[in-house]
Design a binder for these strands. Sequence first.
RNA 1: GGAGAGGUGGCCGAGUCGGUUGAAGGCAGCCGCCUGCUAAGCGGUUGUGGGGGUCAAACCUCACCCAGGGUUCGAAUCCCUGCCUCUCCGCCA
Length: 425
Amino acid sequence: MLDARFVRENVDTVKEALEKRGYEFPLSEFLSINGKRVTLIGEAGELRNRRNVVSEEIGRLKRRKEDASAQLEEMKTVSDRIKALDEKLRELEEETKTFLMTIPNIPDESVPEGRDETKNIEVRRWGTPNTFDFEPLNHWDIAAALDIIDFERAAKITGARFALMKGAGARLERALMNLMLDTHTSRGYTEVFPPIMVNRESMTATGQLPKFGMELFRIADPEFYLIPTAEVPVTNIHRDEILRDSDLPIFYTAYTPCFRREAGSHGKDTRGLIRQHQFNKVELVKFVKPEDSYDELEKLTADAEDILRKLDLPYRVVTLCSGDLGFSSAKTYDIEVWLPGQNRYREISSCSNFGDFQARRAGIRFKREGRKGTEFVHTLNGSGLAIGRTLVAVLENYQQKDGSVVIPEILRPYMGIDQIRLAGG
RNA sequence: GGAGAGGUGGCCGAGUCGGUUGAAGGCAGCCGCCUGCUAAGCGGUUGUGGGGGUCAAACCUCACCCAGGGUUCGAAUCCCUGCCUCUCCGCCA
C-alpha cells in the first residue's frame, strides 16, 4: 500500500511511476475522496473536543448537584452530529483504503521500462548448458521411465496438476529441501516452519488480497486460505509489531508447501511438474532498514543463485521490467534455470524488494535508537528455490543416454546413492 | 465438542456504584544531581496513530485499555458478537 499523504503530496510522481507499469491511476477521484476525508476528520475532531469539554463540565455540575440541563440539551445535538459525521467518515475511510489497497507499488528507478517480459533485461549468466550426444528428454518422460513420479494416480487421488512422488523421486524432493535449508541456515537465515493456512488479514498484508483472491484456495469455514507462498506467513510473523533497530536485519528461511489455483493458465505447462496446484518451495524472507534494502536484494538473489551453483545447474538472472513486475514489488530479479528438455531457461526463483509497501499494509515498523517516532521496515523475499522445478532441472540436466540420472555431487550425502537407474539397469 | 477463567502501556499489575484515567503503583529505560569506583539514593522524564501547526521543533487537538458493534451527555469501566489465551472434562493423534 502506498502512503495516502505521499500520494496526495506527490500526485504527478505517483501517476508517472505507475504509468510505467501500465497502470492507469484514477488520480482525481482519489484526491477528491481523500480531500473530503481530511476535511471531515477535522470537523469531527472539533466536535469531539466540544463533547469532551462539556461532558466534563456536566460531571462537575452533577457532583455538586447543580443544574446541567442546558449542557445536556446541547450535547444531544452534538452527539447526533458526531454520529452522522462518523458514518460518512467510515465510508470515505473505506473508499480510500480500497483505493490504496488496489494500487500497485511504485517501481524503483533502476527498473527498466517496458510493457511485458520481452523487455526484461538479462543481467548475468552462469554455467554452460550441456551438449548431449542424444536427444534430451522431458522430465516427465525421464520420470516415467524411472518410475519416480506418478501423475495418473495423483489425478485419481485429487485431480489435474498434482503429482505423486515415489521412491528416489520422493527422496530427491526431500534431499533438495534439506540442501536448501542447510545452505541458507549456514548463511544466517533462521529456519521457521509456519502455518500453511492463514487468515484474511495475513493475505491482505502481503498483497494477495483483496485483488488476487482468484489465485487462492480458500477454506470456507472458518475463512482460511492455503498459502501460495511462504512469503505470506513468514512476512506476517512481524505484522503489527514495532521492532528495535538493533533487531534488524532479520532473515528467515522456510520450507512450505504452496497452493495455487492457476486460474487463467489453462493449457499452460499441462504436462509435468512445472505448474502444479501444490508444490514445495524454500523461501527466503528479509526485514531490513530502508537504506539497506537494495544491497540486501543483491545478497538475497546471490543466496538463491548459490543453490544452483552448488547443484552445478546453468542459469541466468533477469531484471523484470516495469510492466512485468508483481503487484507489491518495487524491483524483482528472476532466476531462470536451463532446462534441456524444453531447450530454454525457465523461472525457478523470483527475488523482490517490496520497499515499505508490504510493511505499511502489515504495520511492520521499527524504532531507531535515540530518535523519535517509527519508520516502516523494508521487506524482501525470494524463492531459494522452488523445489519441484529444481527437481525438474536436475532430472533434465543430469540425464544419461541409458535413461538413468546422475545425482549431483552435493546431493549424494542426502540421497545415499549417486545415480537413479532404470528398474532393469 | 462440554464447563469455567481471562485479555489494560516495554514488562508486572491497580482500576471503586460509568464522570481531572493515556490510565495508580512497581520494574525496566532515559536525563540530571549525588558518590573515590560500583551499588544505593534524590529530582525529572519515557507509547502509537491521525488532523492542524512550524524551516524544523515547541505546541494545539482527536483516537487508541484484544477486535467490532450497542447503551449513555459521558465507557477501560455496563450490554452483545467475534478472535485469542489458560484450566478442567470428553474425543482424537
